[in-house]
């Protein structure tokens, strides 16, 4: 039997290959096939990385919220691990959403950022809350208590997701951001097709990353658990006859 020393599997290899093919297709479609916009000209091509990042941010954080609830209700370690994995990927996507939106904003809105803009700032708050979630997970202490604290932050962050998403409708006069391009917008056929390709590629990457990240978290749990086992064995050995006076003092 061949020794396996990585977190890959047949599924992740297939997903990885699909992501690479998808990204090549997305670059070709997004840069050379999809039409430029009458108003924005080629700046509109930012939509193909910005919108998939935003949509998969929502999906990742909803996954975190579901995992968090499952931990709080059922004490499911599996779901807690899923929640943590999704949160890390969600933070990555959310950061990219903010960055690409900002870069897109300069030529179209005439500004990179506005501190009073309700869509921009609520997205930043969501991003910071999920960084807080990851920080809480890194604080240490008993695993169960850490998972519970993180789960509460995860659920709180998910609670502001509807505010982030609907802010462009609810506070039209507090944001430069246009309404949803996917649900309310008018897109050229090839622009829509390319956007859907982007959403699929981001989804494939999300699944690839969450599988690897889950397995990493699983390995970390195994290592912590074996460290604990070893420490218990050593503790027990301290009390056994023949233990050195030095051990007994400790």
């Amino acid at each position: 039997m061949q020794e396996i020393n990585h977190t890959g599997s047949r599924t992740t290899r297939l997903l990885g290959a699909a992501v690479i093919v998808g990204l090549v297709a997305l670059v070709l479609l997004g840069w050379f096939v999809a039409p430029e916009d009458d108003d924005q000209q080629d700046a509109v091509r930012m939509i193909f990385v910005h919108v998939p990042s935003a949509i998969w941010t929502y999906i990742a954080f909803v996954t975190t919220a579901i995992g968090s609830v499952m931990w709080l209700v059922r004490r499911s370690v599996w779901w807690d691990t899923v929640a943590a994995a999704a949160a890390e990927i969600g933070v990555l996507f959310c950061g990219l959403t903010l960055f690409t939106g900002s870069v897109w904003g300069r030529p179209t809105w005439n500004t990179y950022w506005d501190w009073g803009d309700v869509r921009l700032v609520t997205t930043l708050i969501l991003f910071l809350m999920m960084i807080g979630y990851l920080s809480v997970r890194s604080l240490g202490g008993p695993e169960s208590a850490t998972a519970t604290r993180a789960a509460i932050v995860g659920v709180m962050a998910a609670a502001i997701l509807p505010i982030v998403n609907r802010s462009v409708e609810w506070w039209e006069n507090n944001t430069l951001h246009q309404k949803s391009s996917l649900t309310d917008g008018n897109l050229e056929d090839m622009t829509l097709f390319t956007l859907v390709v982007g959403l699929i590629v981001w989804g494939l990457f999300f699944w690839w990353a969450i599988l690897h990240r889950f397995r990493i978290a699983w390995l970390e749990r195994e290592i912590r658990s074996s460290d604990l086992d070893r420490a218990l064995v050593e503790r027990r050995a301290e009390g056994e006859p023949g233990a050195s006076p030095l051990e007994e003092r400790v």
Partner: peptide
């Protein structure tokens, strides 16, 4: 470091929410 980040996040979120509630941008 994570403790510092967690505290920083709480402060930043409070400032940002305050900024929004006081209507920093309203057309």
């Amino acid at each position: 470091l994570p403790a510092l980040i967690a505290v920083g996040v709480v402060v930043a979120v409070v400032v940002l929410v305050w900024n929004l509630l006081t209507g920093a941008l309203f057309f």
